[in-house]
Design a binder for these strands. Structure first.
Length: 663
RNA sequence: GCUGUUGUAGCUCAGGGGUAGAGCACCUCAUUGGUAAUGAGGAGGUCGGGAGUUCAAAUCUCCCCAACAGCACCA
């Protein structure tokens, strides 16, 4: 068709100029046509939003942009190329290693290998050296399109059974592509940069780990090597520095330094809360109590241990047995320690007769639950075997469901904002394969929740991102998951709203409607912090230990400079305590430098130093955590400002609203 | 649970087949000092637990436990 009348490509450049090209022109040709320096610097191009190999011929019109190595979009190419170089290096060093996949991930990449002898951390340096050699050789990445048969034959002959499996997974109609780099090649959909040399030197292999083939624990465990790669060494250095900083705010480390809690061998996954940590815990519980009170919940408390029969009825005995702590008494009666609060709450709902007039019934509990989590899952406060859920169950009519979901969303989002969390993702998880209830029921619930999800996003001013998690719902109903991101960039699911079809029916819970008929209520499970333990862990990391004054276990330390000032120091402490603040005194025979250092390390928000001068003038010198400066003010001023700052955000919000209404 | 690594004083860590060492913290004494470590002295562990090899084990081997990094699972 390429003749004199064949249509030219219309390509629009970033500066909005449109130019015509012969179909089949490559990105490299275009870059070369613009300037020699661009041709040299370019590593790929973007056509209509898709990243392409520089050598890829252009067949369609559209917007085009040449991507240089410095471009942010080149970063994923650098990382992906680096993964290929890693794989080549590994096979050069250990030829009997089989390759699998090596994708780009946040901040880097990994590659999974199958090898009898897993890699050791010492191997990483060897591999890095080999990688540097490969990069030095600067072989071009050459794309080839193979037939399915050829690819399978080739990889089978190489003994690369995983690659054969991967070829089979490529959808019909899609090209089977391999990228060659010198002698070595890999099945890959691309794109890549023009040559291995462009990977550069700003890469580092981070660690080795086991990982299951295709993410399934029934499959073979592979040996995974994680790496990071950046455009230049400065970026790499920054990233490594960021990791170090993140480690400093690890809640396990801060928990010890701040004397909040500890773990020990005899109690894997259960927390020993120290006095200060428990104070934080109580401050958090008190906050949540005020919030749920404001939202019309009733707090209840259901038993820790219940007969197996109840858990059989709830379905937990079938679905959740391996995660439950159980105990058999002398008289051979079997009990389970509750892993969830819902069955208990249903019992409370069922006790007595419920009228439609009572609905929605909102039952809350700071429920202490125990779950036998896999040992490898345990992680500080973030993942424990005994924890406290800020749990609640809303029993309502189907008509009330949407409004209740929105009400819960409001409670969750205001709570997160009170704790200064901005990065929130709400995910809607829909019906899983293994499930109870009719498809019509799921249709109805999912459509209600989808509309709630849309409202959540629309009302958030872009603060909330929403996602769909198909097939990830609970077996008894769809759910929303509220996910926060921690200091190290890990995501933690905290809040959740789950619609339950199964439990009311299983327990035969009902209410009496307008016509004196029995009706099954809809049950909504919801948690906001999720686990108080985890939430505190996230708070510690989020604030790097600098908890807001209202949450802080010790809000101020009064430290005297000389013992002469002790009586005045006592007076200051008393005044602060009388005003409701949590205050400690430090009258030890130590220098003020020593005291300041110690309390700063313990993350005390305010150090109030008093010496002879303050005692005489009736003033105090306040040094706030994180600041190197101190301000001097009268004792009265100090008390008033600290008291004001220590007002919890919800109390402040209510107070301000009241004030605004009055004026 | 799976793969790998680690486990020595409260903390951070050194050592390593012949019965343990540092710094900080702790205790005592001296020092009363202006905002991130005053000085001196003292006490403290049998080296995660168990078994084995050995004349001798904290050190080597095996089993178990726990922690850490991932994976899988999950609030």
């Amino acid at each position: 068709m390429a003749n004199a009348t064949s249509p030219q490509l219309q390509l629009e450049f970033p500066d909005s100029t449109v130019r015509e090209f012969e179909p089949g022109t490559s990105g490299a040709d275009i870059a070369a046509g613009i300037s020699r320096s661009l041709a040299k610097k370019s590593v790929a191009y973007v056509l209509n939003g898709d990243l392409k190999d520089l050598s890829e011929p252009i067949l369609n019109s559209g917007t085009i942009e040449i991507v240089t190595r410095e471009d942010e979009r080149a970063l994923e190419l650098i990382r992906h190329d680096c993964a290929h170089v890693l794989a080549e290096a590994v096979q050069a060093l250990w030829p009997d290693t089989k390759v699998t996949i090596g994708p780009v991930i946040e901040n880097g990449f990994y590659y999974d290998f199958d090898r009898d002898q897993p890699f050791t951390p010492e191997d990483l340096a060897t591999i890095e050296k080999k990688m540097a050699q490969i990069i030095q050789q600067n072989e071009p990445f050459a794309k080839e399109v193979w037939s399915r048969e050829k690819a399978k034959e080739y990889f089978a002959a190489q003994g690369e059974s995983y690659k054969v499996e991967l070829v089979d997974m490529i959808p019909e109609g899609e090209d089977v592509k391999v990228y060659r780099q010198g002698e070595w090649l890999d099945l890959c959909r691309g794109p890549h940069m023009p040559s291995t040399g462009l990977v550069g030197r700003a890469f580092k292999l981070m660690n080795v780990a086991g990982a299951y083939w295709r993410g399934d624990s029934d499959n073979q465990m592979l040996s995974r090597i994680y790496g990071t790669a950046w455009a230049d060494e400065k970026q790499l250095k920054n990233y490594l520095h960021m990791l170090e900083e993140a480690q400093k705010r690890d809640h396990r480390k801060l928990g010890r330094e701040m004397d909040l809690f500890h773990f020990q061998e005899e109690g894997p996954g259960v927390v020993f809360w120290h006095a200060k940590g428990w104070k934080v815990f109580q401050n958090l519980v008190n906050y949540m109590r005020r919030r749920i009170d404001e939202h019309g919940y009733d707090e209840v408390n259901a038993p820790q241990i219940l007969d197996k029969a109840l858990w059989q009825m709830s379905g937990h005995w079938d679905w959740y047995r391996e995660n439950m702590f159980t105990t058999v008494t002398e008289d051979d009666r079997e009990f389970a320690i509750k892993p969830m609060n819902c069955p208990g709450h249903v019992q409370i709902f069922k006790n007595g007769l419920r009228s439609y007039r009572e609905l929605p019934v909102k039952m809350a509990e700071f429920g202490n639950v125990h779950r036998y989590e896999p040992s490898g899952a345990l992680h500080g406060l973030m993942r424990v075997r005994g924890f406290t859920q800020d749990d609640a169950h809303v029993f309502c009519t189907p008509e009330q469901l949407e409004a209740e979901c929105l009400r819960i969303n409001d409670l969750i989002l205001t709570t997160y904002s009170d704790f200064d969390f901005g990065d929130i993702v709400v995910k809607l998880s829909t019906r899983p394969e293994k499930r109870v209830g009719s498809d019509e029921g799921w249709d109805r619930a999912e459509s209600i929740m989808q509309s709630v999800l849309n409202k959540i996003e629309a009302d958030s001013d872009g603060r909330i991102k929403t996602e769909l998690n198909p097939g990830e719902g609970a077996f008894y109903g769809p759910k929303f998951e509220y996910v926060l991101r921690d200091a190290i960039g890990r995501d933690w699911q905290c809040g959740t709203t789950q619609v339950d079809f199964a439990l009311p029916e299983r327990f035969g819970a009902f209410y009496i409607d307008q016509n004196s008929d029995k009706q099954e209520p809809v049950m909504v499970h919801r948690a906001i912090c999720g686990s108080m333990e985890r939430f505190i862990g996230i708070l510690i990391e989020h604030f790097a230990g600098h908890l807001p004054l209202w949450l802080s276990p010790v809000q101020a330390v009064v430290a005297t400079i000389t013992s002469e000032a002790d009586p005045f120091g006592e007076k200051v402490a008393e005044a602060l305590r009388d005003a409701g603040l949590n205050v400690e005194t430090d009258f030890r025979n130590e220098k003020i430098n020593y005291k300041v250092r110690e309390h700063s390390l313990a993350k005390v928000p305010a150090i109030i130093a008093v010496g002879a001068r303050e005692a005489e003038e009736g003033t105090v010198s306040i040094r706030r955590l994180g600041s190197k400066h101190q301000t001097s003010m009268s004792l009265e001023e100090a008390v008033a400002s600290l008291v004001e700052e220590a007002v919890p955000p919800d109390v402040r919000r209510k107070r301000d609203a009241k004030k605004a209404a009055e004026s």
